[in-house]
């Protein structure tokens, strides 16, 4: 059992997690859908054994959310006539709509970054774009690791707020 549980969660920790997370992210673009998905995920998190969630909370929560998204998609697909593979195309993120959404999201994020103060923006770019660790950034920029974390959280929050509120410029 423990091994299966591991595997179930591993999908969200290693490289495969990025693909699953991308799948999930595509289902969060529509605000109504994001609300519904969060609501159902929340209810399921209330039902499951808290101790199991606490062991690996991030992987667990993402796993449950991905399961919900997947179930809803499966249900939608089952209602389609047999042989229809329109939704399969959607799944691998290569449909025109999805490519468009992805591009829109990148543009919004780029615009959000421009509103950040220069240090915060530099730290975020060094970490996300350039893949430097927090320690490397601290040494490079000449600030403490704690300050790096602060910049990262602040930068992410501004990006989120920028998208949630439409515009902040």
């Amino acid at each position: 059992m423990a091994r299966n549980q591991r595997r179930w969660l591993d999908e969200f920790t290693g490289e495969p997690g990025r693909r699953l997370l991308r799948y999930l992210a595509a289902r969060l673009v529509d605000p109504q859908q994001a609300d519904d998905l969060a609501q159902e995920t929340y209810l399921r998190l209330l039902r499951v054994d808290e101790e199991a969630v606490i062991r690996e909370p991030r992987a667990y929560a993402l796993r449950v959310a991905a399961n919900v998204a997947h179930e809803w998609r499966s249900l939608a697909r089952n209602r389609l006539p047999h042989g229809s593979d329109a939704l399969d195309v959607l799944e691998d993120g290569s449909s025109p709509e999805q490519a468009f959404e992805q591009q829109e999201r990148m543009e919004r994020l780029n615009r959000a970054l421009e509103t950040l103060n220069p240090n915060c923006r530099a730290v975020l770019l060094l970490h996300r774009r350039d893949k430097l660790t927090r320690e490397q950034i601290a040494a490079t920029v000449g600030i403490s690791v704690g300050m790096v974390k602060k910049h990262l959280a602040q930068g992410l929050a501004v990006c989120r707020r920028f998208q949630a509120g439409g515009d902040e410029s």
């Binding site: 969060l28 969060a38 994020l109």
Partner: peptide, 18 residues
Amino acid sequence: VREFLLAEADWLALEGVD
């Protein structure tokens, strides 16, 4: 839960920024 999921999605997307 919603904001956590959205923040995770953006954190991932930020890899592709610029």
